[in-house]
Design a binder for these strands. Structure first.
Lengths: 218, 218
DNA sequence: CGGGGGCTTGACGCACCTCAAGACAAGTGG
DNA sequence: CCACTTGTCTTGAGGTGCGTCAAGCCCCCG
């Protein structure tokens, strides 16, 4: 689990949150709810729960996923500071949401307010777009294309800096990309061997050759 | 391309359209636009087009897809009579939409009406749910699980009858399920050999053993 | 220092892809 | 009505990328 200083957290949350707020006035207007602190692995909601709340990540990271009967897992999305999740079904949740590491979230209860749906639509459309994007990755890309696209997306969402956090485990990455943990590990090692990325620690990445990474992502 | 009598078309469109209409008053209220008839393969919109219209299928079928630079294609969804599509991005389309066979669609232009977003939200959420469901299939299921789930979904959307149309080609199915055309063909042949389904013609399926098919779909 | 979870690395196998040929169906023109 | 074409689908043989199984490593923490 990566450790952050309070300053780091504030910085990340501040920079990433802004664009989301611009489109979703209710996140800013409403008397901002308290931030709830969650431990690593804590459940935010489960399959079957009633969905009447949307959440905004303040710090940390969240995974949203489904399970098959035999234990296979597909992570449908990760959520980083500033991002909003929790509207993945109209009535009952069809997914689980968990904190990946120590994480703070703000919960916005959905009243039957008329304006709510206006605020929610852009979020739903953005979620739809990301889900469809990910379909392309899962359906048609090779392991190295998947990893390259994943790293670029993460870098972008953390401000586009050359060095960024990898808050999730290799298993989480595998279950997001439709691969096994071994393939994820081997592919990252190959990227590192080619000098495309550096891995100063298990949960931290340095992008050294953006061009090659983008080329790999197709 | 399967041929329908006018009566068949009316029946299918009528039965399937109702649930959608119940949630989306604007589809019923607005002076219903003319049905546009499209030839097989006709483009409805292309990547980059402005997205200011949603469409409802009246008869026929539609595929929505993305292309990679090297020609790989991922079909993100199929749309059957009664179903609504076209809101796959907020500003510009990131996908192509084409008629799979001779198809009729009604186009609903989106004004900046306040009520529009209320009507659109349930559609967007349903689209999101289907996209996430499909992520699980693409990321974590085997070829036969994919085909079984696909056939059950198609049967369900056409009224749950034991016999139903397969409006799309094997290539379309492959590009939807993230497989090759050969794997689709082989898997269907295996289902047929096991007596799980019948294939009276290329574009028609009879489900003979629902239980086994559901079991295969996991 | 010893234990344990997460990660890496290796050897091997298999499900699916690739390449290639042939079957079938539907249309086309003589 | 029949040769011929064309596109789609099926079937086969062989290859490969990723999964599976199994050690072993590393880092953290007690």
């Amino acid at each position: 689990m990566p450790s952050h200083s309070a300053a780091e957290i504030a910085l990340v949350a501040g920079t990433v949150a802004r664009p989301a707020l611009a489109e979703t006035p209710f996140l800013a207007q409403a008397r901002a709810p308290q931030t709830t602190i969650l431990a690593e692995g804590a459940e935010i909601y489960a399959q079957g729960d009633k969905a009447q709340t949307v959440y905004q990540v303040v710090f940390g990271a969240v995974r949203v996923f489904r399970l098959l009967a035999d234990g296979r897992r597909q992570i449908s999305s990760f959520h980083l500071p500033g991002e909003v999740f929790g509207f993945d079904s109209s009535a009952n949740h069809r997914f689980f949401a968990e904190a990946i590491c120590a994480t703070g979230v703000r919960a916005f209860r959905l009243s039957s307010d008329v304006d709510m749906s206006r605020d929610l639509l852009p979020l739903a459309l953005r979620g739809l777009a990301k889900a469809q994007e990910h379909q392309l990755v899962l359906g048609r890309q090779s392991a190295s294309e998947r990893l390259a696209a994943f790293l670029l997306d993460l870098a972008d969402r953390q401000g586009g800096l050359e060095q960024f956090d990898l808050p999730m485990s290799r298993l989480d990455i595998a279950d997001f990309l439709g691969l096994t943990i071994e393939t994820v590990s081997r592919t990252l090692t190959r990227f590192k061997a080619k000098g495309i990325i550096g891995l100063p620690s298990l949960r931290r990445v340095i992008v050294r050759k953006w061009g090659q990474l983008q080329q790999l992502a197709e």
